[in-house]
Write a protein that binds this DNA or RNA. Structure first.
Lengths: 240, 240
DNA sequence: CCGGTGTCACGAACATTGTTCCACTGGCGA
DNA sequence: TCGCCAGTGGAACAATGTTCGTGACACCGG
């Protein structure tokens, strides 16, 4: 995908630059890598392509569509397994971890996932399809599998957004490893009579080296799904 | 935090207008109720108070702090139970449902929850404290309880954000009940060879009348937490 | 070889945003 | 009565997303 990918015969000669959707996405991802999704600007993307902001609107309807295409691009980089009923669990966790790593590599881009209503991009849908297929391979009923895959997607996005926001805030201040330590300290200094558990377990609340917390939550979801089959169908309660 | 205490005797007589943090929050919530959090503007809030935008900055550091205070306000409206080990599960689901309803009443405000790194507001922390307390009452180990409450909070925000975005998009088009039906149709019309499960279960993916999906996911989390205790500690896998 | 025709690039402009500056005021302590 | 100063708000600034209209360049029927 050098300068002139430009799938069909569009602009073959290519005397000048030939702005393409792909080049726009590349530039946008570079910009996000540097300054995060929040500071992503049509002007910055355009500047990276050596032009003005108006040039982008010939290939992208607006900023929102650009966001959709960006996560489509991210999803297209996820290596999708062919569902194997023997190890669907590990396969599912692996896909989730890939999504997480992609999103964490581009700080704040998870925002786009949550604002987007329905995936308009084929690559995104392909990831969703495989996640659903993996859960169905577990033997869960279709509706539960569908809802669980949706919940997992939502959680991944939330996790990445929170992580990116934390990293961003820790960079705003001068020090680098301040975040977790400082948050823990602030939690510890709360009035212990009003917040006994928060104070007592401040360490646990802020812990989670690596992505332990991430894996834990997804495993929790899968375990819940599995235990549900054992229980049989008692309508998963909820009286409120 | 000298500027934002404001509650007590400040400006008692109230000859003119007396801008307060509380009045700012009220105005902001009204604005959000009308046009959503995305369209919330310092100018709109100020206009609702009959003044210019500059007046707000004497009581609120910036838009981000305003957001924090807003969800603090929302959290302060949640009726918190005293944890009862006999029915902690229902209590937990009830608190989550209250949070959900508050957030859904103010479209898009869940955004603020996800952007916020650590809850700066006491009311928010109080909700988090009770959620943690309820999970601890279940007998779960502290770290698992802490992580689960975090995951639940993340999921609630994601769910509300998605729901608000869907409602917003369905209002942009003229019809009102278009969203779910149209999304389902679009999913059904995908190439069945590439997206067999998505096409087959489009109904399940888009289903979820009321908040079935919401309750389902949270129950899934809690069941996973419960089943974990039975298993004992085998380190919740994760090899990737 | 040429004039027409479309598509694409892009400088300039517009409306709106968050935020800051600074002149003004009105009430309270000395 | 005077001075002070917290609170107010009009005006301005830089930055944003988006659109308009002009230009250039490639293609194509003559």
């Amino acid at each position: 995908m050098a300068l002139i990918s430009a799938d069909p015969g569009q602009a073959p000669g290519g005397a000048k630059a030939a702005i393409t959707v792909d080049r726009i996405l590349d530039a946008a991802l570079e910009a996000i890598e540097e300054s995060g999704f929040e500071d992503l600007t049509m002007r910055k993307v355009a500047a990276r392509l050596g032009t003005g902001p108006a040039s982008l609107y010939a290939h992208v309807r607006n900023r929102s569509e650009l966001s959709d295409l960006l996560i489509g691009r991210l999803c297209s980089r996820v290596a999708l397994p062919t569902p194997d009923p023997a190890c669907w669990r590990d396969q599912f966790l692996d896909v989730c971890a890939q999504l997480r790593d992609q999103m964490l590599h581009y700080p704040g881009i998870a925002q786009a996932t949550l604002t987007m209503v329905v995936p308009a991009d084929l690559a995104t849908l392909r990831v969703a399809e495989v996640m659903l297929a993996l859960l169905l391979a577990s033997g869960a009923p279709a509706q539960q599998a569908a809802w669980t895959s949706d919940a997992a997607f939502l959680y991944i996005a939330g996790y990445c957004l929170e992580a990116s926001a934390a990293r961003r805030q820790s960079e705003d201040t001068d020090g680098q490893a301040i975040d977790r330590e400082e948050i823990r300290e602030r939690l510890r200094m709360l009035p212990p009579d009003q917040f006994p558990h928060t104070v007592a377990h401040a360490g646990d609340l802020t812990s989670g080296t690596g992505h332990d917390r991430f894996t834990f939550t997804l495993t929790l979801l899968l375990q819940g799904l599995a235990s549900r089959e054992i229980d049989g169908a008692h309508g998963w309660g909820a009286q409120a």
